[in-house]
Amino acid sequence: MRHVVERTNDESRPLTEPVLLILMSLADKPRHGYALLRDIEALSQGRVRLSTGTLYGALRRLLEERWIERFVQEDTSREKQSYRLTMAGRWQLELELDRMRQLTRAGMARLRASEA
């Protein structure tokens, strides 16, 4: 009987922190690049400050995966490219948050068991 330690496909691996934060930032409303940088800093309580190189590297891949869409936001004074989550992106975010929730639950249970 062979035991699989871990699924090794892409889906089973956690998202990188920048990607998770980008998806989280876009979960409530579309944002343009600078707004994403600021919101990610706020979401992470100042811990994560993405460079534009990191941000756009992640955005490019998310566009390729069709987890986000790019569009021109009309209600700004300057024409700005903005990004919004697609349905697929929202599902991926839900999957990742669910994975984290399960891990947190399991970890907390172990901690409580060791304290008992």
Partner: peptide, 13 residues
């Protein structure tokens, strides 16, 4: 940049 590289030494599925 979406997911970190797969860990090495993990049995493949």
């Amino acid at each position: 940049p979406v997911r970190p590289a797969a860990p090495t030494g993990v049995p493949s599925c």
